[in-house]
């Protein structure tokens, strides 16, 4: 069947099978491989994209169902696709600033789900963030830094500036000592 959709600003028209999953159409058909697949039961959320203004798990949508839609993937979220970090979406920035990712496989879905969450609830509590992301699994971070990143992005999107990040721009001193640590000391 013939389907036409606008993906990350580009209109594509292609022939697909009725059974072609949107996620496979994006990845194999259009080469938009930034959106990964993590499960087959719409449980993990790695494949989350935005269809016509709503977050959706692209593994549980047929490409034919998305005919006529406008889709944004992680690759179309920032202002430019050349990696220029000054064009990143505030949510993308916040995930880096708060170490909200490790292996990064859940990250595209987590970021897309976050963008949707903050659109609907610009001032979420920590609990609301956790529940708002209940459809996205991460196996690396334990979620704590993701929650921090989301709260920070929310603050920035509200125009209140990001929350203080975890990283240190300036060196502290020349030793390996860090402020949070307390030297217990080995025996002499």
């Amino acid at each position: 069947m013939r389907v036409r959709m606008k993906v990350d600003g580009v209109t594509y028209e292609d022939e697909v099978q009725p059974r072609t999953l949107l996620t496979h159409h994006l990845r194999d058909g259009l080469g938009r491989v930034g959106t990964p697949i993590g499960c087959d039961t719409s449980s993990c959320g790695a494949c989350t994209v935005d269809i016509d203004g709503e977050s959706v798990k692209s593994c549980s949508v047929l490409a034919v169902q998305a005919d006529g839609s406008t889709i944004t993937t992680i690759q179309g979220l920032s202002g430019a696709e050349n990696g220029d970090s000054s064009t990143w979406h505030p949510v993308q920035k916040a995930f880096q600033e708060h170490h909200g990712l490790q292996c990064g496989y859940c990250t595209p879905g987590m970021i897309m789900a976050t963008v949707d969450l903050l659109k609907r609830n610009p001032s979420p509590s920590e609990d609301e963030v956790r529940h708002g992301l209940e459809g996205n699994l991460c196996r690396c971070t334990g979620y704590q830094n993701i929650v921090k990143a989301v709260l920070s992005a929310a603050s920035e999107l509200r125009g209140e500036g990001p929350l203080p990040g975890s990283f240190q721009d300036a060196p502290e001193n020349d030793t390996a000592q860090t402020p949070a640590a307390e030297t217990a000391g080995a025996p002499a």
Binding site: Q92, Q96, F167, A176, T178
Partner: peptide, 16 residues
Amino acid sequence: GRGRRRKEDAKLVTGQ
């Protein structure tokens, strides 16, 4: 001992 931003993140947060 310094909390450096991760070099890995740029490609991971942009889907590259």
